[in-house]
């Protein structure tokens, strides 16, 4: 009897399609956005403008409104909010595992679920704004 083959058959019968490539893909895409787009977003929105180094009119209401609720605004939400959220979820999930906190399943649902929920919230906010 060929033991190796029977083992392989058992394995393929039990094998379910993994969802890891999806999370890995979102993590990588979010990682690129976190590295390339997020630094500039933090620098201007959260540091230079609040500190008054860049003019206070830069984010006045009408200007901010027309900037956010537009096609570039949607691209901004996708690249600076949604994808980095999934990147963060992946790292928090693995960080919890490294610190031996929670359980695999619970951490996965909580982190990716949280990222999905906040992403939907951002997209719903965008949709309300353009309607």
């Amino acid at each position: 009897m060929n033991k190796g083959t029977s083992l392989n058959n058992d394995a393929s019968e039990n094998m379910r399609r993994s969802d890891e490539p999806i999370w890995w893909g979102l993590f990588s895409a979010g990682g690129v956005c976190f590295a390339v787009f997020v630094p500039a977003a933090i620098l201007f929105i959260a540091l230079l403008i609040p500190a008054g180094i860049v003019g206070p009119d830069a984010l006045r209401f009408e200007r901010a409104h027309s900037m956010v609720f537009s096609l570039p605004g949607l691209i901004f939400i996708g690249m600076v909010i949604c994808l980095p959220l999934f990147h963060a979820a992946h790292r928090i999930r693995h960080g919890l595992h490294d610190l031996k906190l929670g359980t695999e399943h619970l951490n996965k649902v909580a982190t990716y679920g949280g990222a999905a929920l906040l992403s939907v919230l951002a997209l719903v906010g965008f949709a309300i704004g353009i309607l």
Binding site: F34, V38, A41, I42, I45, A46, F61, A64, H65, V68, I77, V80, I81, P84, L85, H87, A88, R91, I92, H94, G95, D98, L118, L121, A122, G125, F126, G129
Partner: peptide, 21 residues
């Protein structure tokens, strides 16, 4: 791994900004 913790804070700030807008 911890770099994402202040990132999440910034992202929550942006979400709050979107809804206050």
């Amino acid at each position: 791994e911890a770099t994402v913790l202040p990132l999440v804070f910034f992202l929550l700030c942006l979400l709050a900004g979107l809804y206050s807008l």
